[in-house]
Design a protein around this nucleic acid. Structure first.
Lengths: 140, 140
DNA sequence: AGAAATTTGTCCGTATGTATC
DNA sequence: AGATACATACGGACAAATTTC
């Protein structure tokens, strides 16, 4: 059985399902996701596909994966966090929507948004800084 | 030939080579890149590896890929203006580095950076807005 | 108008290297 | 050392968009 993919690509369907589990609390914040091998069995997908699905979630900072450990659901505390004083290079922040973001999210200017900043390094050199903005309360 | 990847991964080496050709004008702005099948022959790499290399260039918006057509070298304006007036939801912009970005990239505050904005939608609903910042001149 | 060829998109299975626990 | 997990790479297959004949 080759790889028919009517409508949405398989990895996006899987990503959507995983996201649903995280946002619905089936996979609580901070918890470890099932291993790739487990997911391949459950979704009957290849490793690459599973990894691609997880990559989608990682883009929106919904999960964090640590080399040699696994992939965690991001704790989205948003109100707790007491940092060490020095601002962490990567992390969550609450910011006010600028006019452009407000228009995109269909909210009023100044509405609080969650900003997740992550840094892409290669050999220690900063290649890119990625800032992802989301609503505190998704309108799903 | 298995898949050893000492030092730089092959897809990054290939990406660097393609970037050189684009920036040096061997592949002029707006021109079509060779098809993936052609690149597999030239670089003696699998299609997956070629696609991974192109994905790297796509991240920096150095190329644009269209289904069924091919991958184009971005007509890289970045200094030639000519925007449509209405800001496109997704696209490139040149912005000044705020203090935090300046620190990360090790440049002075106000230095020009490239901002790539993309939008993650599901069923038309804006799920997240991603802004990626990079240096104009990557320090390979 | 329609069929074929081209090209990118997605997926599968497998194998090996590297990093962490 | 051993187990686990991610990163890279290969080859093959079908799907979908576009172009060409």
């Amino acid at each position: 059985m080759p790889a028919p993919h009517y409508g949405q690509p398989r990895y996006r369907v899987i990503a959507a399902e995983l996201r649903r589990r995280i946002e619905s609390g089936v996979i609580p914040p901070g918890a470890l996701l099932p291993a790739e091998s487990v997911l391949t069995v459950e979704f009957r997908a290849s490793r690459g596909t599973i990894r691609q699905a997880i990559a989608v979630l990682r883009e929106t900072a919904l999960v964090v994966t640590e080399h040699g450990r696994g992939t965690y659901a991001s704790p989205h505390p948003l109100g707790s966090r007491a940092t060490t004083g020095a601002r962490p290079e990567t992390g969550l922040r609450e910011v006010a929507a600028d006019p452009e973001l407000a228009a995109l999210f269909a909210v009023e200017v100044g509405t609080a948004l969650v900003e997740q900043q992550s840094i892409d390094r290669t050999n220690g050199v900063v290649e890119a800084v990625v800032r992802t903005y989301r609503l505190l309360r998704p309108n799903d």
